[in-house]
């Protein structure tokens, strides 16, 4: 049995001051096995982030269902943890305080939260920065904190919403590499949303391509690159072939994307 089962999921938004619903995700079905790393790509407005928020239990579905370990998702729960884009760290808390935050919210009792937080901060390579505040860190460092915060609560499923979207291209590559190294340790089931084709191929066992109006799954591509992945693979012919195929898959949306300003 798949660990995450998404069945005919439809999500609607109600625009403010209007009774007309807007369909963000339309009858999406997807199965994800335990330990699998699945990336979702698509242009803005294709509902990829909404899908992730629904898996996190932060958005309600209009119909269909998401089950994780056989339990239907309706609220956020300790079996999942989410990594957001950069501005989700509490600016008034130190690195340590931010990583502890998730543990505090979940009333963590298994071991000492402070010690645990420190361990995960060391794991993402920020051991020397635990007393720093977010505004003193670079974008890449902030995202390490974000990842540490999510991993510290020991979730079954890791949900990542364009975690490197605000970083520059080089940092982004380094972070992708680091993320995989950390992930290799215990291979938690991961769902990773991005609009970057290279990132999607490099990280994923499978890439889900989504299209817009309304958001739906266009195709799912198995990525047959060996693990652990290395930066050298980015230049391989195999990688180039995946890249080309994804670019074709996203083709029409890529053209349209230039016309549309980023929608929240």
């Amino acid at each position: 049995m798949a660990q995450i089962e998404i069945r005919d999921l439809t999500i609607e938004y109600r625009k403010p001051n209007s009774d007309e619903p807007f369909v963000a995700v339309d009858r999406v079905s997807l199965d994800i096995a335990k330990g699998e790393f699945v990336t979702i790509v698509g242009s803005s407005g294709c509902g990829k982030s909404t899908l992730l928020l629904a898996a996190a239990g932060l958005v309600n579905s209009a119909s269909g269902s998401i089950t994780i370990n056989g339990k239907e998702v309706s609220d956020p729960g300790p079996d999942r943890a989410m990594v957001f884009q950069e501005a989700s760290l509490l600016p008034w808390r130190s690195v340590l305080g931010n990583v502890r935050f998730g543990l505090e919210m979940q009333r963590w009792k298994k071991d000492d939260p402070t010690e645990r937080a420190r361990r995960f901060i060391r794991m993402v390579g920020l051991g020397a920065f635990s007393d720093y505040h977010p505004h003193q860190l670079s974008g890449g460092m902030r995202q390490r904190v974000n990842i540490a915060r999510a991993l510290a609560v020991d979730p079954h499923v890791l949900l990542m919403d364009e975690p490197f979207g605000a970083l520059d291209a080089q940092t982004r590559e380094v972070m992708g590499d680091e993320l995989l190294k950390i992930w290799e340790r215990d291979r938690k089931t991961a769902l990773f949303v991005t609009h970057d084709i290279d990132e999607a191929v490099f990280l994923g066992d499978r890439v889900v391509v989504m299209g817009r109006d309304p958001g739906h799954i266009r195709e799912i591509i198995d990525i047959d690159l060996p693990r652990p992945r290395t930066a050298a693979m980015l230049d391989s012919d195999q990688f180039a072939a995946y890249r080309r195929r994804l670019r074709e898959g996203l083709g029409e949306d890529m053209a349209a994307m230039h016309m549309i300003t980023e929608a929240a």
Partner: peptide, 21 residues
């Protein structure tokens, strides 16, 4: 910041948690 509230909720924060923290 609604993003902070959302992040807190994703870790299962209660309404009181969100208010005080």
């Amino acid at each position: 910041d609604p993003r902070l509230i959302r992040a807190a909720r994703s870790f299962g924060a209660s309404r009181l948690d969100i208010f005080t923290r």
